[in-house]
């Protein structure tokens, strides 16, 4: 483990919401380290704090207490603008509802982040074509999301998340809207890409298929790590 780079490190992370004046501890002191190339699933029942923890790790939400390092940078103390740039360059998101931009074509959706990063046109196009081949959607680049199936849309979302080569891919219930066959296909594809591109994947889920394929399971309960199990 010593030569493996740490991608995420959290130290006593807490997130406390106010619900009608009453404090709700969604995340209650999580210490966690995720290393490069891991295919980790954070699991737990509804309300266990999975999504909140993912939001805090990605900088979409601020921790009430504690520290978060991502790729060696202390993101819990970054300003909004710094976080925005940091997310763009270091994190890829995959969501349950795909969240593609419906007015953009597959190619435009995938190259969106690269446009924000000012990647030259030629390189953008090449990278889009390469990733489309990886996710099995070559030839679909000019289609718009409403003309794709749920599985195809999620493939585009995966391509979009990976194309800018972020250090971490965060996937929040990525299979929840898919039938089990499509979900399994996508998970196998993500596992392949994880190995091929050496990217770190972190899932939030209660889908057994993901748990089966994950190399590490972090089980949350009441906002705390109940069990952290590395599978052989």
């Amino acid at each position: 483990m010593s030569d493996t780079m740490t991608v995420i490190k959290t130290e006593n992370v807490k997130k406390i919401y106010s619900d009608n004046g009453l404090p709700v501890k969604a995340v209650n002191g999580i210490d966690l380290t995720i290393n490069e190339k891991e295919f980790t699933a954070i699991v737990g029942p509804s309300g266990s704090g999975k999504t909140t923890f993912l939001n805090v790790i990605s900088g979409l939400d601020k921790a009430t207490e504690g520290k978060v390092w991502l790729n060696g940078k202390l993101i819990s103390e970054m300003s909004g603008k710094e976080l925005s740039d940091f997310r763009r360059d270091n994190i890829g998101f995959i969501f349950q509802a795909y969240n593609l931009i419906p007015v953009l074509t597959v190619e435009e959706n995938i190259e969106y982040i690269m446009l924000l990063q000012n990647v030259p046109k030629e390189e953008r196009h090449q990278r889009v074509m390469d990733i489309l081949e990886d996710v099995g959607l070559k030839g679909f680049e000019d289609r718009k999301p409403p003309r794709l199936s749920g599985g195809q849309q999620q493939r585009v979302a995966i391509a979009r998340a990976m194309v800018s080569k972020p250090v971490l891919i965060l996937a929040d219930e990525p299979t929840a809207n898919l039938d089990s066959e499509t979900g399994a296909e996508l998970l196998d594809m993500m596992r392949e890409l994880n190995q091929k591109h050496s990217m770190t994947f972190l899932f939030s889920t209660h889908d057994q298929m993901i748990m089966d394929r994950a190399t590490r399971l972090v089980i949350l309960k009441d906002g705390q790590v109940d069990e952290d199990r590395v599978k052989s």
């Binding site: 603008k81 763009r88 998101f93 969106y112 982040i113 924000l116």
Partner: peptide, 13 residues
Amino acid sequence: TREYGLLKAMGTK
């Protein structure tokens, strides 16, 4: 709202 949230999440200013 969701779409703008997504754009921001991806690093749109």
